[in-house]
Design a protein around this nucleic acid. Structure first.
Lengths: 218, 218
DNA sequence: CCTACCGATCGGTAGG
DNA sequence: CCTACCGATCGGTAGG
């Protein structure tokens, strides 16, 4: 994904490409990506305003001014984290739905699949992007927020028919729209208290959520 | 509450007290309180790291260095916001329980009372303190966090027997501890999306939450 | 509580 | 992507 396409028409500035100085060959995609990954971790741990661009540069092994070669501003870097996280989540949700043949499952199992996947996105390994998007939304521009809201809309599209089916079947008493907001709250808040090293597993968490929302026993 | 006590033994530095320069007489309690209230609003809107002590001073009509006459540090001011918010919430929850004679109610109605009061604390008028405590916890010291956790423990004490009664009665299928965490998440997240000016009322929100958690119809 | 101020740090940039 | 740097702002303090 996002591999740099070859540019056959570009004139070679130096013969036989640029020299490789060390073993860790760097190309723009790698460095940009290192900034995004490091920024995601720092933004999650210390918040956007609590993280300096120097911290981010150091995390990627760069000097203090170098992030601005890759990103116009600190805010643009934040948006990149959020957008990449959201695109990734949407994509992985699509895959999970397809892989399980979700449409064939009974609605409670459809909800279980979505909840389990959402916990994975929030709490699984390397899961800094979505928590940053959820908890640092204040720091992006209105235009950026609108753009992210569109991706979030895509993500939520998968949930709506499931909740409506459960509502129609009498398994979900609450108003569907409010239920969706409350359910996402219950899941998203787990970022604040879940500790992967101890306590429940993601499967146990999922079971508890299903039991709470639709009275589904494990 | 917190009225400054008279000090009869203190020698009067000036005859007949200090002169009142304007109509808005100021005493220490008032000014300290103005800082707390202003800080709460700013911390909620812009976050702790995104708020400068100059912003806070200006909101209280002071010069930039003056907040430090009342508080040792910006962090101490944050803690004051959180602690006061939490003490207030615990106190008001106690009053709500007593006023309704909660022990006499059936468990679903006990939960309704607690949920409705919690939404009031989170979303009612002048409700900046608890959202700040929930969303800026990262910025207080471990010692302060421990102190706040104790107040939170008091607050949650009221919920545990209610959830256990519902669990015993088969109205709540989920593990009680996980259910409590998920429920608080669903409620606390409402800070992110609830708009008091439009959309649902707190009563409708409460009804939806009850329907979701224990299948209680309005 | 104000005045005047300090050292540190911040996001960002020019030029290479 | 580094070097060298800038103007702005920050939390906090001394002295009154």
């Amino acid at each position: 994904m996002h591999a740099a396409p070859a540019r056959p028409t570009a004139p070679a500035k130096r013969p036989r490409g640029r020299p490789r100085k060390t073993v860790d060959e760097r190309d723009d995609g790698n460095r940009r990506r290192a900034l995004i990954v490091g920024a995601a971790r720092l933004f999650r741990r210390k918040g956007f305003d609590g993280t300096s661009t120097r911290d981010i540069a150091a995390a990627a092994g760069m000097q203090s001014g170098s992030p601005f070669y890759h990103f116009r501003s600190k805010q643009a870097l934040l948006f990149a984290v959020m957008e990449e996280g959201m695109r990734h989540a949407v994509e992985r949700q699509r895959e999970a739905i397809a892989a399980a043949g979700m449409e064939q499952l009974p609605p409670p199992e459809q909800l279980r699949l979505l909840v389990r996947h959402h916990f994975q996105v929030l709490l699984g390994p390397g899961s800094d992007f979505i928590p940053v998007m959820l908890y640092e939304a204040r720091s992006v521009s209105p235009r950026q927020r609108t753009s992210l809201a569109q991706l979030q809309g895509e993500y939520e599209q998968a949930w709506i028919p499931v909740l409506e089916a459960l509502h129609a079947a009498g398994r979900l008493q609450a108003d569907v729209k409010l239920a969706r907001l409350l359910i996402f709250g219950a899941l998203n808040w787990s970022v604040q208290w879940f500790d992967r090293r101890k306590g429940a597993t993601l499967d146990e968490l999922t079971a508890a959520a299903l039991a709470l929302f639709i009275g589904e026993r494990a």
